[in-house]
Design a protein around this nucleic acid. Sequence first.
DNA 1: TAGGTTTCGTATCGATCACTATGGAAAATT
DNA 2: AATTTTCCATAGTGATCGATACGAAACCTA
Lengths: 222, 222
Amino acid sequence: MENFEKSRGGRPRAFDPEAALDAAMHLFWEHGYEATSLAMLREAMGLTPPQIYNAFADKETLFRRALVRYHEKEIGFALDALSAPVPVKEAIRLLLMGAAEAYTRPGKPGGCLFISGALAASPQAQGIADELKTYRKATEAAIAARLAKGREAGELPADLSVERLAKYLTGVMHGMSIQARDGASAEDLRALAETALAAWAAEVRQAADAKGGTDAGPVLHD
Amino acid sequence: MENFEKSRGGRPRAFDPEAALDAAMHLFWEHGYEATSLAMLREAMGLTPPQIYNAFADKETLFRRALVRYHEKEIGFALDALSAPVPVKEAIRLLLMGAAEAYTRPGKPGGCLFISGALAASPQAQGIADELKTYRKATEAAIAARLAKGREAGELPADLSVERLAKYLTGVMHGMSIQARDGASAEDLRALAETALAAWAAEVRQAADAKGGTDAGPVLHD
DNA sequence: TAGGTTTCGTATCGATCACTATGGAAAATT
DNA sequence: AATTTTCCATAGTGATCGATACGAAACCTA
């Protein structure tokens, strides 16, 4: 596993590319893509500009590599939760609770890089914003897929809209990310997740009630 | 109302400051504070740099004025909903449905300026990020206040945590803002809000059940 | 050791950033 | 009309942006 990249002759690198990438990832996570200057990266990575550009091509490539590393190293909880051999409700619970922990990890920036990285961007960085949107959409799609699997397994009402519920759950995670940025604690986020999960029960109950013929009408219209 | 600022002699302005501020607000809304350059502002506002600086001091002051204008002109729905003479549940419903509409208004950038403006920022723009956080926290506090008022009116269980519920509802609004940025339609957001409001009913029911002595246990643990 | 290859450190590159000095033009005041 | 005051347009300011040119240094192969 070590020395994966074969030496092709020439002077060897005087730094660890993965450690440098980690430093860059944390900086992007904290300040976003455009607001992170090369001067800041240089200091955090402990490298000179030519070292950075030789190893990572340019700032945009460095950011995209940081996204991949973030996806692999920081938010594995999401894939773990959605692929866990548990009922769909428990899987979603693991997902939200994992987010509560990952978004408030000590020593790490609050929230999710896929949101903080570039919600708004200059026209020049539109491609970066689009890339992040793609990551967010992939999460939503993964949630929808897990919900659909649960529905097919009979764990959810057959007439439940998984797309709609996935949008809600993704939105809740996004909201948790911003709350984390605003200083919410892991416990705050867990409480938020609990309330969000209560909606799940209500939504399912509502669908089940409608199915059973005892339609109680819109839940909130009283 | 017109000619509010008295002429103090000298050559009058050749442009409408409010129209220029509107243009700046939309640009900040779309691209965020730091990613909006003066060149972009100059073109969108139809002004020369000295005109901008004479009227608005500097970029930061211009942005803060844009925030005030946004608060007054674009998201009045929030204050309207929270101060409407209706039961608290209906007020919150108005709030979320108002957000669904405001975040997807045709011809306007998606989402909320208070979120898109600067979730992440460079160290130099930390003050701007803090200012936006203050606006977000004010919304959360206003929601909590309305919930507390409803609780005192007997519309909510006495043991309900308004802070916790306010954090959830604020988080949902934040999530709606990001979903809007990612292309969600007003109908998508209304559906998201409906699901979020179902959580409300579940949470209240849960508290009421616990109060009534028929504790059914955590809703989702089955 | 000679040749080839890659990275190293130093010193920048042009472009763009937010911002302003300057001087004349236009309107209000006297 | 004379004076004062403010705004206008032109043309730039120094600073920082992302990204490099250059030649020396350090490795490999032969």
